[in-house]
Computed example of a mutant assay.
Amino acid sequence: MSRIETLFSRKKERVLNVYCTAGYPELNSTLEVILTLEASGADLIELGMPYSDPLADGPVIQASSTKALQNGMSIAVLFEQLKGLRAKTQIPLILMGYMNPVIQYGFQQFCKEAAEVGVDGLILPDLPEYEYETMYGEIIKKAGLDFIFLITPETSTERIKKLDRLSSGFLYAVSSSATTGNEKDFDQVAKYLQRLKDMQLQNPVLVGFGIKDKTTFDTACRYANGAIIGSAYIKALEQPGDIQSLTQQFLNQVL
């Protein structure tokens, strides 16, 4: 089993996936942030590869990407930083990013190097399912990486079932069709999440977009295997203080 599958076989509920931006707040913060998140209670890390045109990201994560790019972060730098990762932790790690920089790097080379440094899965929101099925999926599978598709409240039942079949690791349930970081009325998304729960999908489901504190995390966990926090954590890192204390304080307010 992959590290992600092993996690969900061991922990079937209240799984916390935390998003952080590679190279933020400083270029060399990446490993420190990952290890501190694990020590503070995160189960899974979603590491964002900064990109100048991140379509699914709200202003907070966009700003962190801009800062990371200014710091000098790139895919090559990130892989260099991650070379020592598996000597220090076995926490599952997913890279989240966009197709343009990955294709520029070389898709096959990217997957190969990601696997070599201990990455477990990929989230590429702008990779369409057709291209995944016909061109890129085999490369991802050959590298031994999980691939996570996103679904929204507007995704049809038929398409949800197909994306569930194509995904491995887990299915990313976007709480609404908006960018990350927006306020959500969780009463409004409850029916959507209940619908997903009733479908008995083959993959675990994690809820993302709008999860920011204990209340929203607890609500998401009533309907799914866990949730993903991104913008709220990036905001926490913007505050005065060191990464360790800011991270610990933030996750103490969530768990």
Rank of each mutant, 00 (worst) to 15 (best):
A236E: 03
R14C: 09
E133A: 13
V254A: 07
I34A: 01
K67A: 14
D213S: 10
A190D: 07
Y136A: 13
L166C: 08
G106D: 09
I211Y: 03
I34C: 01
A56W: 02
K83Y: 05
L193S: 11
L85N: 11
K11P: 05
K184G: 03
N225W: 03
Q62F: 01
I34P: 02
N71I: 08
C111H: 03
F217A: 12
N28R: 14
L251K: 06
L171E: 05
P92D: 13
S231G: 07
D53Q: 08
E13P: 00
Q62I: 04
D146V: 05
I34V: 12
G181C: 08
K141Y: 01
E32N: 13
I75D: 01
T216N: 08
A236G: 05
P25R: 09
A87I: 04
G144S: 12
Y19E: 00
V102K: 01
K197R: 14
T247M: 06
L196I: 05
L95E: 06
D164S: 05
E138S: 15
T36W: 01
L82C: 10
Q200P: 01
T134M: 14
D185Y: 01
M73D: 06
T66N: 10
L27G: 07
K184V: 15
V207S: 11
K214R: 15
D53W: 05
K212Y: 04
V207I: 10
R86W: 07
G84T: 14
A114Y: 03
L7K: 09
P128L: 10
G144V: 07
L201N: 06
Y105A: 03
F186L: 08
G41A: 11
Y98Q: 03
G118S: 11
N71E: 10
D164V: 02
K197V: 00
D198P: 00
F250K: 02
Y130W: 13
Q70C: 04
V174C: 13
T219W: 02
L44R: 05
S52T: 14
L237I: 10
T219M: 12
K12M: 11
S64M: 00
D53C: 09
K12W: 02
S40D: 12
N203L: 09
R86D: 10
Y136N: 08
E5D: 15
F186Q: 09
E116R: 13
F250R: 00
Q109D: 15
G210Q: 06
Q188M: 08
G58F: 00
E129A: 15
F250C: 06
L37Q: 09
A115R: 13
R165W: 00
T152P: 00
R10D: 12
I228A: 08
L7C: 10
Q70Y: 07
A42D: 08
A173V: 05
N182C: 12
G241F: 01
